[in-house]
């Protein structure tokens, strides 16, 4: 298992099961592994089981079935060692609101028996932006700043694996981009990152992803392979009336699948040899104008919809 003092896989999850109460199966036989130094994304909506998986891996919750290791250590037997080796940023703001920025950071460093100075290089780029506010109470920070501080606190003991549970949920697109830039920086420091998100477009920032829904994995692979395995040719179509276009496509017998996708509707056809001009004619006949129909590249969101 150990290679050069480092486990072959940073995280291994085998047939993991977590059940709440009698019926609520939050995690249903989930298996995946994360290679050291990669960014691994758990992509799925609320209620998919992402947080339960994170809590098992950070040893805050016992699994009801299956097993898991983090840095080669068992989440049940070796929980104390794991806690020293992981950083965890939960979905909800986790800092001490009444402590200042500086105090929070010192507190987390001390708990892990280290100092802010020892690993300052890891957080420097992020902390530089917080420095002007270091005397401010964490509770008084803006949302983006809180998020940056939480990331610093999760990093200050130089974890082997960093777990980030929905760090970008409810965050505007500009701040989301900034956050992913920070993660890319961290990757160069050789920290393994496991991150969850409900935003499908963030999947492409990961080396490998698991698509998850209702406690079950739909697919685990690189984002590139997942879109490549999409079985049909996908088309993008638009017209002067989107709502009408969607309704028409849904009732058109040649269509296998159709749904809105931003400015366009995405469509796949039952017959791979479909005659595109026939489709365009049909839409025209039904009263649509300005019709544009062309092939389009599959995205992770298309794959997710297909797998549901």
């Amino acid at each position: 298992m150990e290679q050069n003092g480092r486990a072959e896989n940073a995280v291994v999850v085998r047939n993991l099961v977590k059940v709440y109460g009698k019926e609520k199966t939050a995690v249903d036989h989930v298996s995946f592994s994360v290679k050291p130094g990669e960014i691994f994304g758990l992509i799925g909506p609320d209620g998919a089981g992402k947080t339960s998986i994170f809590r098992v891996l950070t040893t805050l919750l016992l699994p009801d079935g299956g097993s898991a290791t983090v840095d080669g250590l068992d989440v049940v037997k070796d929980y104390k060692q794991i806690r020293n080796r992981v950083g965890y940023m939960p979905g909800k703001f986790s800092l001490y609101q009444d402590l200042s920025v500086e105090e929070n950071l010192n507190f987390f460093a001390t708990v892990f028996d280290t100092t802010v100075e020892a690993n300052y290089h890891l957080i420097k780029e992020i902390y530089d932006q917080l420095e002007p506010f270091k005397k401010r109470r964490a509770g008084k920070l803006s949302g983006g700043m809180k998020q940056k501080l939480a990331l610093c606190c999760a990093l200050i003991h130089k974890p082997v694996v960093l777990f980030l549970d929905e760090p970008t949920t409810g965050v505007d697109p500009v701040s989301r981009k900034e956050f992913w830039e920070m993660l890319k920086q961290l990757k160069t420091q050789n920290i393994t990152i496991v991150v969850s998100t409900p935003y499908m477009d963030e999947a492409n920032m990961c080396d490998e992803i698991a698509l998850i829904q209702s406690g079950r994995l739909l697919s685990v692979d690189t984002p590139g392979n997942i879109v490549k395995s999409y079985p049909e040719q996908l088309y993008a179509v638009k017209a002067d009336n989107m709502h009408k276009l969607l309704k028409l496509l849904r009732s058109y017998d040649k269509v296998m699948n159709s749904y809105a996708f931003g400015e366009f509707a995405h469509v796949s056809f039952k017959d791979p040899q479909v005659n595109i001009s026939e489709v365009t004619d049909y839409l025209k006949q039904e009263g649509l104008a300005d019709i544009e129909l062309r092939t389009t590249a599959v995205t992770i969101e298309d794959s997710f919809i297909k797998l549901l």
Binding site: G44, P45, P198
Partner: peptide, 19 residues
């Protein structure tokens, strides 16, 4: 933000209701 955290299929069904 009616569709935050909702899966892509449900998000689209939601927009059908809006339309």
């Amino acid at each position: 933000e009616p569709t935050g955290g909702v899966d892509p299929v449900t998000r689209r069904q939601f927009w059908d209701l809006i339309y």
